[in-house]
């Protein structure tokens, strides 16, 4: 301790305090303050930039989500439209099939009716022709057969016989 006190120099202490005080003041004003504020500004800037980037990222994600949603919606709509179209098509086909069937049936019925009436007419015609022919044949047969008395008698007998059977 005594050695320390002996070594202590008041002059050096004075100069050290004075010069260091001056240095402290000058550095405070001209160096540390601008350095610390510049560093602080830079750090704030970096922080802000990072936050902005984060925001942008989030926004980007939102946009992507939105567009995905839109895409999904569009896809669903297309799907729905296609389905509807298919349904319409099926319905149309079914409808036209029905109509065609109805029409066909109608036509067939008409045709059948026409055929029936034709047939009837034809049958009637045939009947009348057959009747005429029969009458002609019968006339000829009877004319020939009635040329002979016996034959006439026989015929009468036969006819009578037929009547009996009836």
């Amino acid at each position: 301790m005594e050695k320390l006190l002996e070594e202590f120099s008041l002059g050096l202490f004075f100069w050290q305090t004075l010069l260091f005080g001056l240095l402290l003041f000058l550095l405070w004003k001209f160096a540390w303050k601008p350095i610390l504020s510049a560093v602080n500004d830079r750090e704030e800037g970096i922080k802000d930039a990072l936050a902005a980037a984060e925001d942008a990222k989030k926004e980007m994600q939102n946009v992507t989500a939105d567009s995905e949603k839109l895409l999904k919606e569009a896809r669903a709509e297309r799907e729905a439209m296609l389905k509807e179209a298919r349904e319409i098509k099926d319905k149309l086909i079914a409808d036209s099939k029905d109509q065609a069937k109805v029409e066909g049936d109608k036509m067939i019925k008409q045709a059948q009716a026409a055929i029936e009436s034709e047939k009837k007419a034809a049958v009637a015609d045939i009947k009348s022709q057959v009747a005429n022919l029969s009458v002609d044949i019968a006339e000829k047969v009877i004319k020939e057969q009635l040329s002979d008395k016996n034959k006439q008698l026989k015929l009468v007998d036969d006819l009578l016989g037929d009547i009996k059977l009836n």
Binding site: L12, W15, L19, F20, L22, A31, P34, A38
Partner: peptide
Amino acid sequence: TKSVVMIFITGLLMFFLFRGLAKSY
């Protein structure tokens, strides 16, 4: 004394060094 001179030189060095740093920003 020699120490005072060195304090002065160190002070000058520090001042110009950190003033330079402050200005470079």
